[in-house]
Design a protein around this nucleic acid. Structure first.
Length: 597
RNA sequence: GGGGGCGUAGCUCAGCUUGGUUAGAGCACUUGACUGUCACUCAAGAGGCCGCGGGUUCGAGCCCCGUCGCUCCCGCCA
């Protein structure tokens, strides 16, 4: 069976968009949507669209009945029609190079309007320079927006990526196992979406933030290798790249170590990217978290450009300069970047960079530039010849510094570095710099209270060397965790898990859940599984939505999700959430405290 | 939770700075003309709670206050 008529059914023989010169002379029956029509008076053209593309259908007294021409002239755009006709090669001067089907047209003998359409609320067919309708209208009329070839291409690509993923993992012995959607609330982490229980008054399920514990239990059960295209839910405020429900490629495996998961992930990413037409080189680069923070101020650095951060503390330490000496005396450092060509920027342009640094928390942004072999700028006069040598500025360079503790300077310099790269136009949009960031700290310590929280999640295993070397200083432990980063974006992350229930119990205690009864109440079902005999295991999860977005070339997250929510977590198409009748609430043992009810 | 931007015809936008005749344009829509178009062309027409509520004013699309919606950012997102 050929690609062309794989879609043949009782009502149609071919897809509109699949017709080519090879089908010339063939009688075809098509079904599709009227994308546009042109009525020249006695001669009518309809661009007929389906998911495969578009083809021109022509109505002409030479081959069409008068009734067919009249029906074709009258049909409105976006109506669904069935057309019968003959595929004919177009004369050379009438070919349309902009259309995949442009070498042919379908000379219609009949047309039947099976799904007449009201005038669409938002246009589906657009001119080259027409702006898209407002986002809320596109979401409200999603049934129309999703007809656009661009969005159809995005969702079709997404389908192919998921199919490749399934095939890839299945071929390697990974089992696609499902986990519950109605699950147990987890008090830490993101807010849960709660579902009230009708049968158990006052009790609630939660929608899963991820299938984390279930997949670890699969390992305890001996399922060895698991994956799932898993829907996850987090009730937090949204962003451009964040939806309340999202999809992960969730993976877990037993009897493995970090390198096993990383190698598997690299091959899988390469297979996914290949499906989208890109060859990805493996293995990926690797960098420790400490290195990433030191050189880029960020745990997911964009390696498409340099502008690395350097430590200039030694150059500034001896100087009689209040800003830096105060910071250094307080235990801080002077770190910054050299921007080749930045000396040409105006005072105002550098002030804008400083504003970014301040917004990121820095007190200010120090600046020195070298013009005609001489240093210039407010800091220049404090610099000794030794300090000048240490800065190592070339002519035309601008150096930007933050004098502070790393906690302050890292986010500020990260922001400044990104903006400098953007301004200099040195970001290669075609480059793909995959990177593993490894050896994350195990815990984040609240500077005020000293309280520890998990950087990855509470089930991550700590590096055993660190636990042995600093048994009483868990804030120094590194985690056996890893993030997969592409061009400054986190694609996914995972870790080796704690498989010893006593160690897991201690981790909970370090995180402030010391009470055993409390541990059992919250995580008993995991601890029981671990106690029953747990293999060493670990895994990773990748964000499907973001991957689909990247591979659809710059579309927004909402453009790779069929029915996304707005930034207020509202579904405009189906109008959710919505209020429910009081008797429904009563049955669920709920009473609303919202005003106006 | 906080801050910025936007909201005018079915759609995309002007008009707002400096309040003052009947609120405009392009596309879409309706009607008519047109036999090779492919964003067809041409002619005519219809289409407005200027997001909503309040205030200032002789007079508000325009100024002020509030509110709702969308969006971007901060907080938040183990």
């Amino acid at each position: 069976m050929t690609e062309g008529n794989r879609f043949a059914t009782a009502l149609r023989s071919h897809q509109c968009g699949a017709l080519r010169a090879e089908q010339a002379g063939t009688v075809v029956r098509l079904g599709g949507w009227v994308h546009r029509s042109r009525n020249l008076g006695g001669l009518v053209f309809i661009d007929l669209r389906d998911r495969a593309g578009m083809v021109q259908v022509s109505f002409n007294p030479d081959w069409s009945s008068a009734a067919a021409i009249a029906d074709a002239a009258a049909v409105g755009v976006e109506s669904v029609v069935l057309v019968e006709g003959v595929v004919e090669l177009r004369p050379a001067e009438m070919r349309n190079a902009h259309l995949d089907t442009g070498d042919v047209e379908v000379r219609a003998t009949s047309i039947r309007v099976v799904g007449p359409a009201v005038t669409p609320a938002i246009p589906v067919a657009r001119g080259k320079n027409d702006a898209l309708p407002a986002e809320d209208l596109r979401l409200r009329h999603r049934y129309l927006d999703l007809r656009r070839p661009e969005l159809q291409a995005n969702l079709i690509l997404r389908h192919r990526l998921l199919q490749v993923t399934r095939q890839f993992l299945s071929e390697r012995g990974y089992l696609e196992l499902e986990t519950p959607i109605l699950t147990k609330p987890t008090p830490e982490g993101a807010r849960d979406y709660l579902v009230p229980s009708r049968v158990h008054p006052g009790e609630f399920y939660a929608l899963p933030q991820s299938p984390q514990i279930y997949k670890q239990l699969f390992m305890c059960c001996g399922f060895d290798r698991y994956f799932q295209i898993a829907r996850c839910f987090r009730d937090e405020d949204l962003r451009q790249d964040r939806q309340p429900e999202f999809t992960q490629i969730d993976i877990e495996a037993s009897f493995i170590e970090r390198d096993d998961i990383m190698a598997l992930s690299e091959s899988m990413i390469a297979a996914i990217w290949l499906e989208a037409g890109h060859v990805v080189a493996t293995p990926f680069e690797r960098m420790s978290y400490a290195d990433a923070m030191e050189r880029y101020g960020c745990d997911r650095p964009d390696l498409r450009y340099g502008l690395e951060i350097h430590d200039f503390t030694a150059a500034f330490a001896p100087l009689e300069f209040g800003v830096t000496s105060t910071a250094i005396a307080a235990g801080g450092r002077v770190r910054g970047i050299r921007v080749s060509g930045g000396a040409a920027w105006s005072r105002k342009q550098v002030d804008e960079l400083e504003a970014l640094a301040k917004k990121a928390g820095a007190g200010g942004l120090l600046r020195v530039k070298k013009v005609d072999g001489k240093l210039d700028g407010p800091v220049a006069k404090f610099l000794t010849p030794d300090a000048e040598t240490a800065l190592a500025l070339a002519d035309g360079d601008l150096a930007l510094f933050v004098a502070a503790g790393d906690r302050v300077s890292n986010p500020a310099l990260d922001r400044v570095r990104q903006e400098c790269a953007r301004r200099l136009g040195i970001v290669d949009e075609n480059a793909r710099r995959f990177l593993w960031v490894t050896d994350f700290p195990m815990f984040d310590q609240d500077p005020a209270t000293g309280a520890l929280s998990a950087v990855h999640h509470p089930f991550t295993a700590a590096n055993p060397d660190d636990m042995a070397a600093f048994p009483d200083a868990p804030e120094k432990w590194r985690a056996l965790a890893y993030d997969c980063v592409l061009n400054g974006l986190e694609l996914g992350g995972g870790s080796i898990r704690t498989s010893d229930p006593r160690v897991q119990s201690r981790m909970f205690a370090l995180l402030g859940i010391g009470d055993e009864a409390e541990q059992e109440r919250r995580f008993g079902f995991l601890l029981e599984g671990l106690r029953a005999g747990a293999p060493p295991h670990g895994g990773i999860a990748f964000g499907v939505d973001r991957i689909a977005m990247l591979l659809s070339r710059g579309a927004s997250l909402r453009d790779v999700i069929a029915f996304p929510k707005t930034t207020a977590a509202r579904a405009l198409f189906e109008n959710a959430p919505s209020s429910v009748p009081p008797e429904d609430l009563r049955e669920l043992h709920l009473r609303s405290t919202a005003e106006g009810e």
